[in-house]
Amino acid sequence: MSKSLFDRLGGSDGIASIVDDAIENHMNNPKINARFLPYKERPEHLASIKQHSIDFFNAGSGGPAVYSGRDMITAHTGMNINPEEYMHVIDDIFMALDKNAIDEDTKKDVLAILWSLKGMIIAK
């Protein structure tokens, strides 16, 4: 029996590390960091966003977490995220996956999930 996506991402600890690294990449990415840097001044809000992201990927990959955040459309409405920004987010996530030594097949599965979400996030 093959491992679940949750297990291939390193379980809860692996997903937490990937999310931390991805958000750090967003903060350092000049194409999208204007959307993320303000959270540094609101550490409690940043911690909440990180936890929602961890829970979302944990639950969505077959893990035990329960995601209690807003749905993707509600969370991104009014942000007017364009396709270029979305691609930068994906690139940053893939840099985090690489940093955490995630294999190519698992990265393809993550990409499929990220691609399936784009219509709920772009231009909302």
Results as ranks from 00 to 15, higher is better:
89 V>T: 15
54 I>C: 02
55 D>G: 05
96 A>G: 01
64 P>M: 09
82 N>L: 10
82 N>R: 13
61 S>T: 09
61 S>G: 10
54 I>R: 00
73 I>W: 03
66 V>C: 00
81 I>P: 10
71 D>N: 15
86 Y>T: 05
81 I>C: 10
63 G>A: 02
96 A>P: 06
56 F>L: 04
74 T>V: 14
66 V>E: 14
78 G>E: 01
80 N>P: 12
58 N>L: 09
73 I>G: 00
80 N>C: 08
97 L>W: 11
61 S>K: 12
85 E>F: 09
86 Y>M: 05
99 K>S: 11
69 G>F: 13
72 M>Q: 08
88 H>A: 15
75 A>I: 07
86 Y>Q: 04
68 S>V: 15
68 S>L: 12
93 I>R: 02
62 G>F: 13
63 G>M: 03
95 M>K: 15
94 F>K: 03
84 E>P: 04
72 M>N: 02
63 G>I: 09
74 T>R: 06
97 L>I: 12
96 A>Y: 02
83 P>Y: 10
97 L>C: 05
94 F>W: 02
72 M>D: 01
69 G>W: 14
78 G>T: 01
55 D>A: 15
55 D>C: 08
86 Y>R: 02
95 M>V: 13
81 I>M: 14
56 F>G: 03
57 F>N: 02
58 N>M: 00
98 D>G: 08
62 G>A: 13
65 A>G: 03
62 G>N: 12
62 G>V: 15
90 I>N: 02
97 L>H: 10
89 V>A: 13
99 K>M: 10
97 L>E: 03
72 M>L: 11
84 E>H: 12
66 V>F: 00
91 D>K: 06
78 G>A: 07
72 M>A: 07
84 E>C: 01
89 V>W: 14
95 M>W: 09
74 T>Y: 04
97 L>Y: 07
59 A>C: 12
90 I>W: 01
58 N>V: 00
78 G>K: 05
57 F>E: 06
72 M>W: 10
55 D>R: 01
74 T>C: 13
87 M>E: 09
60 G>C: 08
85 E>M: 09
73 I>T: 14
86 Y>H: 02
99 K>H: 10
99 K>I: 05
80 N>W: 12
86 Y>F: 12
60 G>F: 09
60 G>Q: 03
90 I>G: 01
71 D>G: 15
71 D>P: 11
55 D>H: 10
65 A>Q: 01
82 N>Q: 05
69 G>R: 07
77 T>W: 00
95 M>T: 15
59 A>T: 13
55 D>I: 05
84 E>S: 00
80 N>S: 15
97 L>T: 09
80 N>Y: 15
71 D>F: 13
70 R>P: 14
67 Y>H: 06
94 F>M: 00
67 Y>Q: 11
73 I>A: 14
75 A>W: 03
100 N>D: 03
64 P>N: 10
71 D>Q: 12
64 P>H: 05
95 M>I: 15
59 A>Q: 15
90 I>E: 02
84 E>G: 06
94 F>E: 01
99 K>V: 04
54 I>F: 11
82 N>M: 07
67 Y>E: 05
82 N>C: 14
89 V>N: 05
66 V>Y: 00
78 G>I: 00
77 T>S: 11
69 G>T: 12
75 A>G: 04
77 T>A: 04
75 A>T: 07
79 M>S: 14
88 H>W: 13
64 P>G: 03
58 N>D: 15
64 P>T: 06
71 D>L: 13
